[in-house]
Design a binder for these strands. Sequence first.
DNA 1: CCTAATTTGCAACTAAGTTGCAAATATTTT
DNA 2: AAAATATTTGCAACTTAGTTGCAAATTAGG
Lengths: 140, 140
Amino acid sequence: MKSDLDLKARQMLKSARLYCTAGRVGVLKALLKADGALRQDQIAERLGKKRFDKVTIYRTLDSLVKVGLVHKAYIEERARYFELAHNCSETQCHPHFTCRNCGRTHCLMDMTIPGVKKRHKGFLIQRQQTRLEGLCPACA
Amino acid sequence: MKSDLDLKARQMLKSARLYCTAGRVGVLKALLKADGALRQDQIAERLGKKRFDKVTIYRTLDSLVKVGLVHKAYIEERARYFELAHNCSETQCHPHFTCRNCGRTHCLMDMTIPGVKKRHKGFLIQRQQTRLEGLCPACA
DNA sequence: CCTAATTTGCAACTAAGTTGCAAATATTTT
DNA sequence: AAAATATTTGCAACTTAGTTGCAAATTAGG
Ligand SMILES: [Mn+2]
Ligand SMILES: [Mn+2]
Ligand SMILES: [Zn+2]
Ligand SMILES: [Zn+2]
């Protein structure tokens, strides 16, 4: 079963020079299919049959983050969210919008965020992430 | 001991129509004195003599957030950070910069972030928060 | 295949944050 | 000022996200 997605995931791992293991392929595929950021438990759930220890999933996410394939999303929840970096530019991620009424979070892929300058009083800025809050279309 | 700070804190609580209790005054004073965002344990520590239960501090923070005196800061850590809202505009908070090398986080109070539009495809945007990542002056 | 490097699962642990409830305290009313 | 009411507090028990160390399993590469 070498699906298209499967090959893509393996490809991504290979070019990031990461060991190509079942767990990593699975996690990556889950993130590729997802339409937003996921928590470790959501990823585990989507791996279905092929169960992996949560420690493995966390470590897998760490390695994916380290090579830049995945980003942590800054969503206010107790748990951490991860998503693919492929919808973000090198220095800027798409914003996440959280509704004050229903609590749902949306990825605003198509919103353009004005970038800040790369340098500010000695700070070298390498990534900019934006969190938005307000009312979603359903609640506004 | 009605310090200046003390009066200010009481004043803030009163105008937010919150019960003016020792805990709230203390937490508020801690945040007023702080130069950045604090976690509950850091606040507890700064309350020193007057010990409060952590549950109380969390609930106090919740009430302060609800009335808008305090904001949650979006800093990647296992714990939640809180800071006064008084350095933020109604719709935008100052950015937090986290160094990829030393891990320290700085409040960039003087950095101007271009604001996004108030509406985007049905989303009503009421607050914008920015997280920056890169190298701090010491590590650059 | 064989070897070395890396990843994985397990089990035990740490610690942040939550909940319910009775006692304490703050505000309002009489 | 005292009583009545509304709100906050502490405690203790709990939930659950995330971490750590280590031995066993898996991968890459010759
Ligand atoms: Mn997203
Ligand atoms: Mn700040
Ligand atoms: Zn909503
Ligand atoms: Zn630094």
